[in-house]
């Protein structure tokens, strides 16, 4: 496999993109999970699909547009979707969770209609729903790399504010932290990360990369920083292990990555139980 990795550019793209997404998806996932917004990733990934489909549709009529990576349109839709969710939350103050199914079903409906108009229903749809590692191009990789740098810089700079807001939003605002602006920046980051991650694991599985590693680490970590560290470690194990397994067993990489994350989670839960029994 090492030899093939040197030989084939698409394998390099897949592995490098995987390494980067294995860092940023669980990193943002920690903040999402502790705020009990785990499902937001699902809603945004479905909106991203609508964006990608819209881009394919425009590309059908404009040859200029064909040169533009559909992932950017996906990001734009995802960002707009994140603002839409925030708005819906305000409208349905007492039913905040409604924002998720509204956005999710709206996104998939829009995406499916756009795709059918663009005649991409057969092959493309499958790729977007379940991910397609082989299709990751150099320009996709560049997009992932840029987003990774942005996420790492912003989270480092705003770490203490994000941490405080996640722990106790009301108190953080009383202490003079600008909750709204920071929440806005954060949700934009989430939208971008989802847009770039879905190429590897697909619309249906992207939220797993943000939540499963966190679900595992939260059980055994001491402190918040350790939770982040372990989440990234589990995320990397799942992505890299999943890609290698998929290569040798010739199975779908997206699904393999998610199953591996679930296995890690089960292993951690068993480990925790054994430890509790001993003490």
């Amino acid at each position: 496999m090492i030899q093939a990795l040197w030989q084939f550019e698409f394998l390099q793209n897949a592995f490098l993109a995987g390494v980067l997404i294995g860092i940023i998806a669980p990193l943002l996932g920690v903040f999402i999970v502790v705020r009990r917004q785990a499902l937001i990733a699902d809603a945004l990934s479905h909106i991203t699909l609508a964006g990608i489909a819209a881009s394919l549709l425009i590309g059908k009529y404009s040859s200029f547009w064909q040169g533009i990576n559909p992932v950017y349109m996906g990001m734009a839709f995802s960002a707009a979707g994140s603002l839409f969710i925030e708005q819906l939350r305000k409208v349905y103050k007492h039913f905040e969770e409604l924002a998720i199914p509204i956005t999710l079903s709206g996104g998939i409906g829009l995406g499916v209609v756009f795709l059918s108009l663009a005649d991409g229903f057969n092959s493309d749809l499958f790729n977007y729903l379940f991910g397609s590692v082989i299709a990751i191009s150099r320009s996709d990789l560049v997009a992932v790399a840029v987003i990774t740098v942005v996420v790492l810089v912003v989270v480092t700079l705003l770490y203490k504010e994000l941490f405080f807001l996640s722990f106790d939003e009301e108190h953080a605002v009383v202490s003079g932290i600008r909750g709204k602006s920071i929440q806005f920046i954060f949700i934009l980051l989430v939208a971008f990360v989802i847009a770039v991650s879905m190429q590897i694991v697909g619309v249906l599985l992207v939220s797993a990369l943000m939540t499963l590693p966190v679900a595992a680490s939260i059980r055994i970590a001491k402190g918040f920083k350790q939770t982040i560290g372990l989440s990234i470690l589990f995320g990397e194990l799942a992505v890299l292990g999943g890609l290698v397994l998929a290569y040798y067993l010739d199975i779908a990489p997206g699904g393999t990555i998610v199953l591996l994350s679930a296995l890690i989670l089960v292993a951690v839960l068993l480990f925790k139980r054994l430890k509790q029994r001993k003490s």
Binding site: D168, K222, G223, F224, K225, Q226, T227
Partner: peptide, 10 residues
């Protein structure tokens, strides 16, 4: 998942 130290540093 926050340690006492982390909570106070908030």
């Amino acid at each position: 998942p926050a340690s006492v130290f982390e909570v106070v540093s908030m």
